[in-house]
């Protein structure tokens, strides 16, 4: 009995089991590993290394010079502010929409579920074109807003709208599966004990979905920082006022300022990479809790 347990526990050591599984596939273990690592290495890691190397071309001094490029600091600041706003706003509304999709039954729920995924499908450039068509100076809505002193396109509100559009599904899709798995009996218990809807949400539901909301918001933030396609249309090239970092980088490359572009890119890249690692950690911790 004792021997067999020992044997079983030795035989099912995850390392052995997992590499064994891989050996049963075509190409074998080392073949698959090799293809995967070469693919990711050549296609993702190499370009990343190339930008960072170029950015640090003359050591940290060149990085400092980059931040001194007129407009660089302002562009990065505007990018971070709009991305943070997008993370907060879509963090709140994304959670709300996930709650609606999971917990409420109403006609048109399937349509709402599809519409929420629209930003995954619509090209970001087209998002920008859409916003210009709706809020641009030649449209009825844009004209109305302009008469009341509100400028949307070629200004910060337009940038924020574009980023909100593009990132809307991220929080919804991060929170939805966690809400689906959540045991409703706790909520019912809170309800029976006299807690109102809001109290139940705040004290019971929110603590359970908080890691998912945070992961979704981080992803939103990361995605918003990098957004280009819609903003190249909407932002209107006013250096220091309406240029976000990616559009600013594009402008530098089209003026053949490769060094400056690479340096600003490195700053942006460092932020994105840190966010990816952070999100990885957050989602992993959630996974560990379940196992």
């Amino acid at each position: 009995m004792a021997v067999s347990t020992l044997e079983r526990s030795a035989g099912s050591r995850p390392e052995q089991q997992r590499s064994g599984r891989l050996r049963r596939l075509p190409l074998g273990r080392w073949g698959l590993r090799g293809v995967a690592l070469v693919y990711l290495g050549a296609m993702v890691a190499l370009p990343a290394v190339a930008v960072v190397t170029r950015g640090f071309g003359h050591g940290f001094a060149s990085l400092r010079d980059a931040m001194a490029v007129p407009g660089a600091a302002a562009a990065i600041r505007l990018t971070l502010i709009t991305a943070a706003l997008a993370a907060v706003i879509n963090g709140a509304f994304g959670t709300l929409l996930a709650y609606i999709l999971v917990r409420l039954r109403f006609p048109g729920r399937a349509i709402l579920n599809t519409v929420v995924d629209l930003p995954f499908a619509v090209p970001t450039l087209v998002t920008g074109v859409m916003l210009v068509a709706l809020y641009g100076p030649n449209s009825p809505v844009g004209g109305f807003l302009k008469r009341h002193g509100v400028q949307v396109i070629f200004a910060t509100p337009g940038i924020l709208l574009a980023v909100l559009f593009v990132t809307l599904p991220l929080v919804v899709r991060a929170v939805e599966p966690v809400l689906l798995e959540l045991d409703r009996s706790e909520e019912e218990a809170a309800h029976v004990l006299g807690a109102g809807g809001w109290t139940t949400f705040r004290r019971v539901v929110l603590p359970a979905i908080r890691p998912a909301v945070a992961a979704g918001a981080l992803l939103t933030f990361a995605r918003a920082i990098g957004e280009f396609g819609s903003l190249v249309i909407v932002s209107g090239n006013i250096t220091g006022r309406t240029l976000t970092a990616p559009v600013f980088i594009f402008q530098l490359t089209s003026q053949f300022k490769g060094d400056e572009a690479a340096a600003v890119s490195t700053v942006l890249f460092a932020i994105s990479f840190a966010l990816v690692l952070l999100t990885e950690r957050l989602t992993r911790r959630r996974g560990d809790e379940f196992s």
Binding site: V44, P47, A48, V51, G226, F228, S265, S272
Partner: peptide, 26 residues
Amino acid sequence: KRIVSAIVDLPFAVSPVIVGLAAVVL
């Protein structure tokens, strides 16, 4: 393996403009 997993997610976060610039550097 965790680094490989993070590398897979990197294109989600990196701005396409930076990707274009990387290709120019290469």
